[in-house]
Amino acid sequence: MLRNVFRSQTLRATRPAVISPRALAVSPLAQRSIRFYSEEAKKEAPKAEEAKEEAAKEENSEPKDELTLCKEQLEAAQKERAQFKDHYLRAIADFRNLQESTKREIKKSKELALKSFAKDLLETADTFEIALKTLTKEETSDTTKKLKELDDLVEGVQITQNMFLNALKRHGLEPIEAIGEKFDPNVHEATFEVPQPDKEPGTVFFVQQQGYYLNGRVLRPAKVGVVKGED
């Protein structure tokens, strides 16, 4: 009895397991995964081979000695130096060209400004010429004629002065208004002091020489007489 039981258990242990067809069936997802990994393996295979070949080449190549490395570093440094030198020379050339062009522009601007100012002065010179032509050099005893010529001369000089001042103003030159102003050493130059009972001390009451501004800055201070205070 016991022998038969032992024999049956031994046969069960040694009998191969039977796998059903359902167990052997693979799902579509698993099949797709298997195909993907196989394709990736095919793609990676050439890369692995190339890496192996490069590694073999590096192993077979002879190591560079110190002299060769120094020569290569020296050549690289010389190339870099040549590039820097080229950039430096180009920068110097550009800067010099800029300097020359700037000088030409400044000179041209000065010439244009002088040309415009000269044209305005020519109008004043023309007016002077017309005023002088109205005067006759002939001596005459006609007092009325002389007075008329004198009046014409005064009128011509006034017109010329106005034209001249307008020309100066167009170019940034303006007279300094000094009469009745408080004395300012920045724009006035006191030439004398006189006490004036009816005027405030320290104010300008007389202009000896007209002063001018040029573009808002003092070109020439006005020479003035100042009211002296009671000391």
Rank of each mutant, 00 (worst) to 15 (best):
V226L: 00
H87K: 11
F128I: 00
N60K: 15
T10Q: 10
G180H: 03
T191F: 04
E139T: 04
A56P: 01
L2D: 02
A82I: 08
E189S: 09
D120F: 04
I19A: 12
K79R: 14
K182S: 04
E39T: 08
F6L: 15
G211V: 00
S8C: 09
L168M: 05
N4D: 08
R7S: 07
E189F: 09
T127H: 07
E75C: 09
K79L: 15
F6G: 09
D184P: 02
S109H: 15
I176W: 00
H87V: 06
K43A: 07
A56Y: 10
Q161R: 07
E72H: 03
A41W: 06
L2T: 10
I176C: 02
Y213K: 07
A51M: 11
E50L: 15
A51L: 11
I92V: 10
E149S: 08
P46C: 06
F206M: 07
L153A: 10
Q83V: 03
E111G: 07
I130D: 14
L214P: 01
A222L: 01
I179T: 01
R104G: 06
E123H: 07
L173R: 02
L2K: 05
R170G: 11
C70E: 12
S33W: 02
A23S: 04
L168Y: 01
G225N: 03
S61D: 14
D184Y: 02
M1K: 03
A51P: 01
A25S: 06
A30Y: 09
K43L: 13
E105M: 09
Q83A: 04
A41E: 08
R90V: 08
E50K: 12
L168E: 02
F192N: 06
A30F: 13
K64R: 14
V226N: 00
Q83S: 02
Q78K: 13
S116C: 07
K103N: 15
F6Q: 13
V26F: 05
A56C: 02
K71V: 03
V157Y: 05
E138Y: 13
R22V: 11
K133G: 06
E123P: 06
K137D: 14
S20Y: 05
P21N: 12
R81P: 06
G202C: 01
E54K: 14
F36Y: 12
F183G: 00
E138P: 14
D120R: 07
A125M: 08
A25W: 04
V194Y: 00
D184L: 01
K57E: 14
H188V: 07
K182C: 03
A23G: 05
E54T: 13
V187W: 11
S141W: 02
V154R: 08
R104N: 07
E189D: 01
R81G: 14
F205N: 00
R32N: 05
T140W: 00
A17H: 10
T10S: 10
V226R: 08
G229T: 01
E200Y: 02
Q158M: 14
E58N: 10
G180I: 01
R81M: 15
N215V: 05
F95P: 05
K107G: 15
T160H: 04
Y37P: 03
E230S: 12
R220W: 01
S141Y: 01
A178W: 02
K85V: 13
D184M: 00
P46R: 10
G156E: 04
K146R: 10
A48M: 04
T127S: 15
A76I: 14
